[in-house]
């Protein structure tokens, strides 16, 4: 595992920088708690539109290690957002975190190249493992 080295690339003293996209503040809060505790730096957006705006305006996508996104949100929904992220920033790994336990949808996303499709409620360990795996992948694309 190359965990811990991402910080060097990101310019942060953490294991990596994660963008959470979910329309529910409490959901964002619990993801943030789990990831902060595991040593990640977290930024939030409440929908796809805001996420895109956040990355474009302030956050240099090169400083972003992972995006965790729901797929059912108002305005720009997660599916649209994920397509957009993949086009604009193909090197940033994506994780879908959703309430839909839908096998077909999961397979579709995995085929498109996302790192993992997680279903809420997700265990902390599973979430952090997925993020760690995504960061490994990020390392590879950077090298």
């Amino acid at each position: 595992m190359t965990e811990g080295t991402a910080g060097m690339f990101s310019g942060h003293n953490t294991k990596g920088r994660v963008l959470i996209v979910d329309d529910e503040p409490d959901v964002r809060k619990v993801i943030k708690m789990a990831l902060t505790k595991a040593g990640y730096d977290v930024i939030e957006a409440e929908d796809g539109e805001k996420a895109i705006a956040a990355i474009k305006e302030g956050e240099n996508p090169l400083l972003l290690d992972v995006i965790i996104s729901d797929i059912r949100m108002p305005k720009v929904n997660g599916v649209e957002a994920i397509n957009y992220f993949q086009q604009q920033w193909p090197s940033v790994p994506l994780i879908v975190l959703t309430g839909f336990p839908d096998m077909e949808m999961a397979t579709g996303f995995i085929k498109k190249g996302i790192v993992d499709y997680l279903v809420k409620p997700v265990e902390k360990e599973k979430l952090t493992a997925a993020v760690a795996k995504a960061i490994d992948q990020r390392e590879i694309t950077r090298l």
């Binding site: 529910e24 409490d26 959901v27 619990v30 708690m33 789990a34 059912r72 959703t98 309430g99 839909f100 336990p101 839908d102 279903v119 809420k120 409620p121 997700v122 902390k124």
Partner: peptide, 21 residues
């Protein structure tokens, strides 16, 4: 069923994670 699952899984996630917290 998947619609209901979605609507339940979100609050369920919050409950489990907040209880752990």
């Amino acid at each position: 069923a998947s619609g209901i699952a979605h609507d339940i899984n979100n609050p369920l996630y919050i409950i489990l994670a907040m209880a752990e917290a």
